[in-house]
Amino acid sequence: MPVTAEPSPAVQGEGALVLFSGGQDSATCLAWALDRFPQVETLGFDYGQRHRVELDRREGLRQGLAGLDPAWGRRLGPDHTLSLAALGDISDTALTRDSEIALARDGLPNTFVPGRNLVFLTFAAALAYRRGLRHIVGGMCETDYSGYPDCRDDTIKAMQVALNLGMERRFVLHTPLMWIDKAQTWALAQSLGGQALVDLIVEESHTCYLGERGQRHDWGYGCGTCPACDLRAKGFSRYLAARAG
């Protein structure tokens, strides 16, 4: 598999913290980080999300990734989970309530949890500060996404400035998926860990907003109709077509 045996000189000795939900994007980001940094820790958030089953997938993904390559296994450090129940309490959204997924009056999908990524990055930076980690990796993307404003590149850049000023550190926020679509995200996984990583993400990760794990599709488990399943399924189809072509 095309994995660098040792991290590049640019990141030698610098650790990373990956925002790791248990979904396709964060699993790909974790592989990306393991391929680059000598020490990688993971962080998940429990905010009362409707698809909380994603948190249950995290350990299987971590162990699977560690087993794909000895170097990845050596680099993978501790996992952390933080409870952010207050975020769920103040969020009246389809991700935190049993309600139908639809567009809100402002044009945003009602799966948008206001402030979620801003809160996530703030807590991640606080943990990275304590753990002595400089790099923070997240799966935010504004190419194939639901229109969430806190996934935009400008938002992440602004957060990096604010966190560095507010904590007197030089954190680097990495978003390796920012400018690629879901088909390219599958292709990135393939380039990082071969078919074994693609298969691991299909089988172990979770994307469905409804938390559905009953039905197995060629791209993984999910209801097959929610926006998250739709993006993942269409991306997987385009990825397979590109490989076949």
Results as ranks from 00 to 15, higher is better:
residue 51 H to Q: 10
residue 205 S to F: 12
residue 119 V to K: 15
residue 139 G to P: 06
residue 134 R to H: 11
residue 74 R to V: 00
residue 242 A to D: 11
residue 117 N to M: 10
residue 94 A to E: 12
residue 144 D to Y: 14
residue 98 D to Q: 14
residue 45 F to G: 04
residue 229 C to Y: 15
residue 209 Y to L: 10
residue 146 S to L: 15
residue 2 P to Q: 13
residue 77 G to D: 00
residue 159 M to I: 01
residue 182 K to A: 01
residue 117 N to W: 15
residue 166 G to H: 06
residue 14 E to Y: 13
residue 148 Y to T: 03
residue 81 T to E: 07
residue 114 P to Y: 15
residue 82 L to Q: 10
residue 13 G to E: 06
residue 172 V to T: 13
residue 78 P to K: 15
residue 214 G to W: 11
residue 138 G to E: 02
residue 23 G to W: 14
residue 59 E to L: 06
residue 169 R to Q: 14
residue 154 D to L: 12
residue 23 G to L: 11
residue 125 A to V: 02
residue 49 Q to M: 10
residue 206 H to P: 00
residue 239 Y to L: 07
residue 141 C to T: 10
residue 81 T to I: 02
residue 115 G to V: 01
residue 174 H to P: 05
residue 37 F to C: 03
residue 109 P to L: 07
residue 237 S to E: 15
residue 199 D to N: 13
residue 232 R to Y: 12
residue 243 R to F: 04
residue 57 R to T: 06
residue 6 E to Q: 14
residue 228 A to Q: 15
residue 24 Q to M: 13
residue 67 G to W: 06
residue 102 A to W: 11
residue 108 L to Q: 14
residue 167 M to W: 08
residue 120 F to A: 07
residue 18 V to C: 02
residue 188 L to A: 02
residue 64 G to H: 12
residue 228 A to F: 09
residue 203 E to R: 15
residue 137 V to N: 03
residue 114 P to L: 10
residue 111 T to G: 02
residue 77 G to I: 06
residue 60 G to M: 05
residue 221 Y to F: 12
residue 15 G to E: 08
residue 51 H to A: 13
residue 245 G to Q: 11
residue 101 I to W: 14
residue 230 D to C: 00
residue 124 A to G: 00
residue 145 Y to I: 01
residue 245 G to K: 12
residue 165 L to N: 08
residue 6 E to F: 13
residue 47 Y to E: 07
residue 13 G to S: 02
residue 155 T to G: 07
residue 218 D to A: 12
residue 64 G to I: 01
residue 152 R to H: 14
residue 91 S to D: 06
residue 219 W to Q: 09
residue 25 D to N: 09
residue 149 P to F: 04
residue 152 R to F: 04
residue 82 L to P: 02
residue 3 V to H: 10
residue 117 N to F: 13
residue 193 G to W: 08
residue 91 S to Q: 07
residue 35 D to C: 00
residue 134 R to E: 12
residue 199 D to S: 09
residue 161 V to Q: 08
residue 69 D to I: 01
residue 160 Q to P: 05
residue 114 P to E: 06
residue 160 Q to S: 01
residue 184 Q to R: 15
residue 122 T to A: 13
residue 107 G to K: 14
residue 160 Q to E: 11
residue 232 R to P: 00
residue 170 R to T: 09
residue 72 W to R: 06
residue 148 Y to G: 07
residue 163 L to K: 07
residue 171 F to P: 09
residue 28 T to Q: 08
residue 66 A to V: 03
residue 176 P to W: 11
residue 5 A to W: 05
residue 214 G to F: 06
residue 100 E to S: 06
residue 30 L to M: 00
residue 91 S to C: 05
residue 169 R to V: 00
residue 234 K to Q: 15
residue 14 E to C: 04
residue 206 H to I: 02
residue 133 L to F: 03
residue 138 G to I: 04
residue 143 T to P: 02
residue 9 P to L: 09
residue 52 R to H: 14
residue 105 R to S: 07
residue 184 Q to C: 03
residue 206 H to T: 03
residue 149 P to A: 03
